[in-house]
Simulated assay, not measured.
Amino acid sequence: MEGTLKRETRQGVTLVGELAGSVRFGFTERTGGMSEPPFTSLNLGGHVGDDPAAVAENRRRVLAALGVDAPLGALLVPNQVHGDHVALVDDASPAALARVRDEIAAGADAIVCSVPGVPVLLCFADCVPVILTLGDAFAVVHSGWKGTRARISAKAARVLAETVGKDIAGIRAWIGPHIRGDEYEVSPELMADFAATFDAVRPAAAAGSRLLDLAACIREALTEAGVPGGSIRDAGLSTLRDNDRFFSYRAEHGRCGRHGAVAVITGRAL
């Protein structure tokens, strides 16, 4: 177990997550794919210079490990731009999904989904993956320092609650593998910027530290939005220390693959 999540290997692909129930989700590890170095081996990022055929096969394997019957073409993978745009999937009709694909191609760093059979994947290599669930719906969020400062996880939580018509206090949140607060050194200016808006890092900044704890800031933003602190779980996994399991942009000097946060609502496949 990792935090409250289960680590499970299926068909050679290892995920840390919840792989049963109405909403299945997981944080992928880097093994079990077909990508060659330096993308070894389960690289899910299509923008890093890897062989597109390898990326496609890796994504297919992840869907199979998650137990998703939908074809690879049903997978939604946004163009992540370190912004705070949250795309919404609340209609599985072909026309609606085509509009969503156009929207996320223009840039999105979170997707809220309330319809079954539409798998969602976002990619990471040190930034913070966040998965939110509420009833039979979910959100997958990419939160680097820019997204964290913009409180994108809290924004996604509000969209998720509004979409399903439920109290935001019912949301459960999981923080996945990322560069940890005792590893992520930033400039004095960026540290001061975060300390001006997040109580969680103010004591460290006041003591002269330049170690930025993004997960603590995400937790603060979520609780401010109304998500109970006890419903926010951190898997406690480090991309830097656990570089054999996850990709790390810093550890691998900017040349590496991307692991993923993937989720789907079980039910009819597209």
Rank of each mutant, 00 (worst) to 15 (best):
A161H: 07
A200H: 01
H178S: 11
V86C: 08
V141L: 05
L122K: 00
T163Y: 12
D193H: 15
D242T: 11
A95E: 15
I175Y: 03
A251K: 15
C123S: 14
D84Q: 05
P177E: 13
Y249S: 06
A251M: 06
I168V: 15
V128Y: 02
D109S: 09
V159F: 00
L211A: 05
G17K: 10
S143N: 10
G45T: 04
A215H: 03
T31S: 15
S22H: 08
T133A: 00
A263G: 05
D234T: 10
H82R: 08
G73C: 06
F25T: 08
R61Y: 04
E18F: 01
S35H: 08
A139Y: 04
D167M: 08
P38Y: 01
V128D: 07
K6W: 08
T9R: 15
G107S: 07
A54D: 15
S187G: 04
F194H: 06
G181V: 05
V128W: 08
E18V: 08
L5K: 10
K166N: 11
D91G: 06
I168H: 15
M34G: 09
H82D: 15
A65K: 04
A137I: 05
V115T: 15
V159K: 12
A169I: 12
S114N: 14
L222S: 04
V16I: 15
T223P: 05
D69E: 14
A110Q: 14
S114V: 13
E252W: 10
G46L: 00
V120N: 07
G229H: 08
P116R: 01
A173Q: 04
I179H: 06
G254A: 05
A235P: 10
G208C: 10
R24H: 02
E2C: 12
V68T: 01
E183N: 13
P94K: 04
S41H: 09
F194L: 07
A110F: 11
R172H: 10
L160I: 10
D234S: 07
A20D: 14
G21D: 11
C256N: 13
P94E: 01
L75F: 00
C113S: 12
D102K: 10
I131G: 03
R59I: 03
V81I: 14
G147Q: 03
E183A: 03
S143A: 15
A207M: 01
G144M: 03
T163Q: 11
S143F: 00
C256S: 14
V55I: 13
A200D: 05
R7K: 09
Q11D: 15
G170M: 06
D84G: 02
R245F: 08
V48I: 00
I265A: 10
G135I: 09
E57C: 00
G45H: 06
G46D: 11
P129N: 02
D126P: 03
F138N: 03
V112Y: 02
D167Q: 09
D199E: 03
